[in-house]
Amino acid sequence: MDVEQWTWAGQERLAGFCLTFVQNREPAAVAAALGADSLTLMTLAEADQAYPISRPGALLRLGAFGNWVFCFEDRAPIANRPLAITRLSQGTRMLQVTKSGDGMVIVRDVVDGRKAEMFEPGGAVYVDGPLRPRIAALPPANSRIVAALAVVGDEVGANLDRATLDGLLATALSTLKEPAGQR
Rank of each mutant, 00 (worst) to 15 (best):
R162Y: 05
Q96D: 11
G57P: 04
R55L: 15
R55T: 14
L59Q: 10
A79S: 12
R183M: 13
S54F: 03
A64Q: 14
N159P: 00
V69G: 01
M1C: 11
M104G: 03
A170S: 09
Q49D: 15
N80H: 14
A47K: 05
L62H: 07
E120K: 11
D166R: 13
E117S: 09
L131H: 02
R162F: 05
A124E: 15
G153N: 02
I145S: 02
A29F: 06
T98V: 09
V125A: 08
A76F: 11
A33V: 08
W6R: 03
A58M: 07
K99S: 02
G153S: 05
L138T: 09
T175S: 12
G16D: 06
R144W: 07
G66H: 13
G10W: 12
G181C: 14
A158C: 13
V152M: 03
A33G: 14
Q49N: 12
A84T: 08
D112A: 05
R13M: 13
G91K: 06
A172C: 09
R108F: 00
S143Y: 04
L138G: 12
Y126K: 03
P133F: 02
Q182A: 15
A36D: 03
L95E: 02
C18I: 02
K115I: 12
V111S: 01
T92A: 08
A163D: 14
M42T: 09
A172T: 04
V105I: 08
A29D: 10
W68G: 01
G66I: 07
R144C: 06
L165M: 06
L168R: 15
M94S: 06
A31H: 10
A136Y: 15
T171P: 01
V125F: 14
R61H: 10
D37F: 06
F70M: 04
G123T: 04
Q182K: 07
Q23S: 14
G101K: 08
P121E: 03
S38G: 05
R162P: 06
Q23G: 11
A136W: 15
